[in-house]
Amino acid sequence: NKFNKEMRNAYWEIALLPNLNNQQKRAFIRSLYDDPSQSANLLAEAKKLNDAQA
């Protein structure tokens, strides 16, 4: 399933972002599970926040 693969990839990328705190990571990951079709958008948002907090 395409969404499962995208979701799994996004999950690990988000989990490993160095500048997000655990609460932020959990919120993004919860959103991934709520709507796997938004994986790419959620990952992009997480990366933006990660960069902003660098």
Rank of each mutant, 00 (worst) to 15 (best):
D35G: 02
F3T: 15
A27P: 02
A40S: 10
A27K: 12
S39K: 14
I14M: 05
Q23N: 10
F3D: 15
N22L: 13
S39H: 12
S37Y: 12
D34G: 10
L16P: 01
A27G: 10
E45V: 12
D35T: 12
K5A: 03
D51N: 13
I29S: 04
R8W: 15
A52W: 06
R26K: 09
K2N: 15
F3M: 15
Q24E: 08
A52Y: 10
A40N: 12
A52Q: 10
K5Y: 02
K2E: 15
A10C: 03
K48L: 10
M7E: 02
N9S: 10
S39C: 09
Q53L: 08
Q38F: 07
D51Q: 06
D51W: 11
N9F: 12
S39W: 08
I29C: 05
K5E: 15
N41T: 11
Y11L: 14
M7Q: 05
A54N: 09
K48V: 07
R26W: 14
R26H: 13
F3R: 15
A27L: 05
K25N: 01
L32E: 00
D34V: 14
A54S: 12
L32Y: 01
K2T: 02
N22D: 05
F3Y: 05
Q23D: 10
L20I: 06
Y33H: 06
Y33V: 13
P18I: 04
L49E: 05
N19R: 06
K48Q: 11
N1H: 03
L49V: 07
A15Y: 13
K5T: 01
Q53V: 07
K47I: 05
P36M: 04
Q24A: 06
L49P: 00
N50L: 01
E45P: 00
Q53D: 07
A44Y: 11
Q23C: 13
L20D: 00
E13G: 14
A27E: 10
A52I: 10
L43T: 13
L17P: 00
Q23W: 10
N4R: 02
L32V: 04
N22K: 13
A54Y: 07
R30Q: 10
A15T: 14
Q24P: 00
P36A: 04
S31V: 13
N9L: 15
P36G: 05
L43N: 02
S37D: 04
N4M: 03
E13S: 09
A40C: 11
R30L: 09
N9V: 13
Q53H: 06
D35S: 06
D35M: 06
L16W: 15
I14A: 00
R26Y: 13
L42I: 12
L32I: 07
P18Q: 05
A15W: 09
N4I: 03
S37I: 07
P18L: 07
I14F: 02
R26G: 13
A15R: 15
K25S: 01
D34A: 08
K25G: 00
N21T: 11
N50P: 01
E6Q: 06
F3I: 15
N22V: 10
L16Y: 13
R8A: 14
L43Q: 08
L17V: 00
K47E: 03
A44C: 11
Y33T: 07
P18Y: 04
Y33E: 04
E13N: 07
S37G: 06
Q23A: 13
N21E: 10
Q24F: 02
N21I: 09
I29P: 00
L16I: 05
A15I: 15
E45A: 05
S39R: 15
W12L: 12
W12S: 06
A54H: 12
Q53W: 08
A15L: 15
N22C: 09
F28M: 07
A44L: 13
S39T: 05
L16S: 12
S37T: 11
A10D: 02
N41K: 12
E6S: 03
D34M: 07
N22T: 09
S37L: 11
S31T: 06
